[in-house]
């Protein structure tokens, strides 16, 4: 029946006739429902495009798909990095470098404390907070004592070293080599009173939220870390 629809459209005036004639004959609810259905389908048939119109539409859509895929031959990932503690500096860098290995075009937009990851000097001294994380080996009340952040950071740094886990600097260098684009939020640079020279070579400065939105809109994977 369905495949006949385009043909039915050509004889839509004839199709309309019986449907309208059926409706008044309906005496119970079921018949009325059938009549409504019949009437709807014949209306649809009346409005259904012809084969030629469908063929033209298919061609139009095929062109649109071809244009869309031609424009999007590379996979993209966009990450927004907002945190600057030692533990939270890792995920965006690990995911960025790995995605680059998969062939993704990766941008990481660093804003607020996330900017410290790109700061050549500060990135080597990122701290681990000793409070606020119940998985820490010290109770929060002890963690809040002066100097405890330094203790927990040293513990973490030792673990990183013992385990041969890459350092933040190594991950940044590797990511840059792999073609990852690191962007430093200009508003945060001004806010923190940083200088453009404070960042690793290859970091993009002078970018704002609109750049991030553009990257996010084009990306296959978007992450806020």
């Amino acid at each position: 029946m369905r495949s006949d629809t385009p043909d039915a459209a050509d004889t839509s005036e004839a199709a309309d006739g019986p449907a309208e004639a059926d409706a008044p004959d309906a005496t119970d609810a079921a018949d009325a429902a059938d009549a409504v259905t019949d009437s709807t389908s014949s209306d649809a048939a009346a409005e259904a495009p012809s084969r030629a119109e469908l063929a033209a539409r298919v061609e139009e859509l095929e062109d649109a798909i071809a244009a869309a895929t031609a424009d999007d031959d590379g996979k993209k990932m966009s990450i927004i990095a907002t945190k600057g503690t030692l533990d939270m500096a890792y995920p965006p860098l690990i995911l960025a470098s790995t995605a680059a290995a998969f062939g993704y075009e990766v941008t990481v937009f660093h804003t607020f404390w996330g900017l410290d990851i790109l700061h050549e000097e500060r990135s080597k001294n990122l701290k681990l907070s000793s409070v606020g994380n119940p998985n820490m080996p010290v109770p929060n009340v002890v963690g809040a004592l002066p100097g405890m952040d330094r203790v927990t950071t040293s513990m973490m740094e030792k673990k990183i070293d013992d385990n041969d886990t890459a350092t933040i600097e190594e991950l940044i260098d590797t990511s840059l080599e792999m073609g990852v684009e690191f962007q430093a939020c200009q508003m945060t640079i001004d806010l923190m009173d940083y200088d453009e020279d404070d960042f690793y070579d290859g970091v993009t400065t002078g970018v704002g939220a609109a750049t991030a939105i553009q990257d996010l809109a084009e990306a296959d994977i978007q992450l806020l870390v």
Partner: peptide, 15 residues
């Protein structure tokens, strides 16, 4: 040998 995530994958890609 000795390297941990993500380095084995990243270095494999580079190689």
């Amino acid at each position: 040998k000795g390297a941990s995530c993500p380095m084995p994958v990243v270095q494999t890609k580079s190689a």
